[in-house]
């Protein structure tokens, strides 16, 4: 019979994971890791944000890139969903829109790994409706 995973297996994995992370970044603080936030309000979910988040989980794990991947609410760019915000250590966050599987792979390959900007960035000076109202 195949053994079913339990929290005991997580304990074992933790030791292995901790040594790997310590070796590579010498710190466990998220600021030292690539941070990916996936917008997951109704607009994002209906546009395929779950698949994009899953792709980042699988691909960053496969490439052994130290990262944290989290969800966030609507960033106000419903027209450009799925949207993601990527922060590379030491750099300003960048928001990408219309992220499909192909674009997600391009972002990982070109931006996260090589540090080159790719098409599809929502400019930081772009105003959401909320920003305009707060003026």
């Amino acid at each position: 019979m195949t053994k079913v995973k339990s929290l005991d297996d997580l304990k074992k994995m933790r030791e292995q994971l901790q040594s790997q992370v310590s070796l590579r970044v010498n710190s466990e603080t998220p600021e030292k890791m690539v941070q990916v936030k996936v917008s997951m309000a109704t607009c994002g979910i209906a546009s395929g944000a779950k698949e994009i988040m899953n792709l980042f989980v699988n691909e960053l794990d496969r490439r052994a890139i130290d990262a944290v991947i989290t969800q966030t609410g609507c960033m106000g760019y419903c027209f450009a969903e799925p949207t993601i915000e990527v922060t590379i250590p030491g750099k300003e966050p960048v928001v990408f829109g219309y992220v499909n599987a192909q674009k997600a792979n391009e972002i990982i390959e070109q931006y996260v790994v090589a540090g080159n900007l790719v098409d599809g960035i929502i400019p930081a000076n772009y105003e959401t409706v909320k920003d305009q109202k707060n003026k």
Partner: peptide, 19 residues
């Protein structure tokens, strides 16, 4: 169990999914 490791790390997410 994870202690100072982040639950948002891809390897942890994949482990939870499989479990």
């Amino acid at each position: 169990i994870l202690g100072d490791l982040d639950i948002s790390m891809p390897k942890v997410t994949r482990f939870l999914r499989e479990m």
